[in-house]
Nucleic acid binder design. Structure first.
Lengths: 246, 246
DNA sequence: CGGGGGGTTGATCTCCTTCAATCAACGTGG
DNA sequence: CCACGTTGATTGAAGGAGATCAACCCCCCG
């Protein structure tokens, strides 16, 4: 049992205020949202939404990490999205969920019942506009992953995953590391494998190999030190900097 | 040399009127679009947009087929989108193109200069709304492909591609085939390989195998007869019907 | 006739999967 | 406090799916 995290009810000082679907809202629009929103807590490992189920709400991840996954009948599983704080869950205009959403860590979500939210979208262009922007970003991310899944080697896949997590860490926490970076892996080896279209054994082997070659250092299983990000991005096979550094 | 296709300038009887980004527009809004739109023709094989280039226009594919591809320095190439009539090209709010856009067949595009179109989006919610809808659909398609790329076998990949093309054909042409279907492959073996994260040799072999096993029949290289779609979708590894049939 | 683009097929190789053993960390109940 | 089970991770050995390299075919077109 864990203590349910207390979250400010004030949108004004919400940690994801300036990045979530509400980012562009004016104070009065925020007021409207504040009236219909509600928070939900999920424990690590808990399934937030089952694929195929009816979805009666949409919302934003406030804290914690969740995954979007697709599973075939025989058990093969592919992650199709990694939801970090400020990411949006659910699809306005559709009733059924297309993917499983699973909490990787404890998760707090800011939810809206679907119907009122849809109404709000038509009356509040700022929300619709921000959602479009976020969806376009997700589409770009998905397409980047298609290259990873389709054409990269196992080693490059691991390097790609690490550098993407590092990049997100960088923008989320407004750090500005030049070369050395430290990241906490939010995923198990198995989850990484599902993300990368590999087996967990291959993930483990390639992480060991990158460590042996000095591309990364490990402290425990989940704590990764990246001595030189350029080196890592080189291993990922991306052209030069990938827009990461100047 | 080919004759440049003549396209009606009237939005009212445009072939993609009810599916493109303009689908939800009222007559007066259509009028505004009509004033700023212009058509461009591209020949098969021609690159419409180079990745990294400045994009000064957005637009819809009116006829023909184009591909979105990402290429690594060493030449490895992954297709990340297949653009059919009514699909939208370009990203409002971004200057540089992220992918190569290449005409697979002769292509006619209905274009708008980016800046005026962006202005229109804020003033015409119908356009923004439709674009959001289309982007969400594309995101779903991209995620479906992530499963194909990450977890399916070569044989399943081919079957998936064929059944997706068949499905699109079905909705586009409002046919309602029960079991037997005929499709024209719009792609070379190499393009299919780039779509599926395979080599063209493997594509060729798996197509031959599906033919040998009676899942498909071939007339020439590009004309595919599908005696039983259920059988094909079975081979694709999708659960039962995938929403295709009733 | 020659050449080139698209396609098929064969032989070989290799990278990743599969199967399996082992380990460390952790919690739990006797 | 220790035996036990569990979960996540590492490592090894063997096998296979798909890549690679290469030859060849078909068809169209100049």
């Amino acid at each position: 049992m864990m203590a349910t995290q207390t979250i400010s009810q004030e949108c004004g000082d919400c940690p994801i205020r300036h990045r979530a679907v509400c980012a562009r809202c004016e104070p009065d629009e925020l007021q409207t949202l504040e009236e219909i929103k509600y928070y939900r807590n999920f424990q690590a490992g808990q399934t937030i939404i089952w694929s195929g189920d009816r979805m009666d709400f949409v919302g934003s991840v406030v804290s914690g990490i969740a995954t979007l996954t697709q599973t075939m009948e025989d058990g093969r599983c592919q992650m199709v999205g990694l939801l970090l704080p400020s990411d949006f869950v659910g699809r306005p205009g559709r009733d059924g969920a297309a993917y499983d959403v699973v909490a990787t860590t404890d998760v707090v979500m800011c939810c809206f019942r679907k119907r009122p939210f849809e109404d709000l979208m038509t009356s509040t262009p700022h929300i619709a506009h921000r959602l479009l922007e976020m969806t376009l970003d997700e589409l770009d991310a998905a397409r980047e992953w298609m290259l990873v899944l389709g054409r990269k080697t196992a080693r490059e896949k691991i390097a790609s995953l690490l550098s993407i997590i590092a990049r997100r860490d960088n923008t989320l926490n407004k750090r500005n590391a030049k070369t050395r970076m430290v990241i906490d892996l939010p995923l198990t080896r198995e989850a990484m494998a599902d993300y990368l279209g590999l087996t967990l054994e291959t993930v483990s082997r390639q992480i060991s190999a990158l460590k042996k070659d000095g591309v990364i250092e490990l402290e425990g299983k989940r704590h990764v030190i990246i001595p030189d990000i350029r080196r890592l991005m080189d291993e990922a096979g991306d052209d030069s900097d990938g827009g990461f550094l100047v």
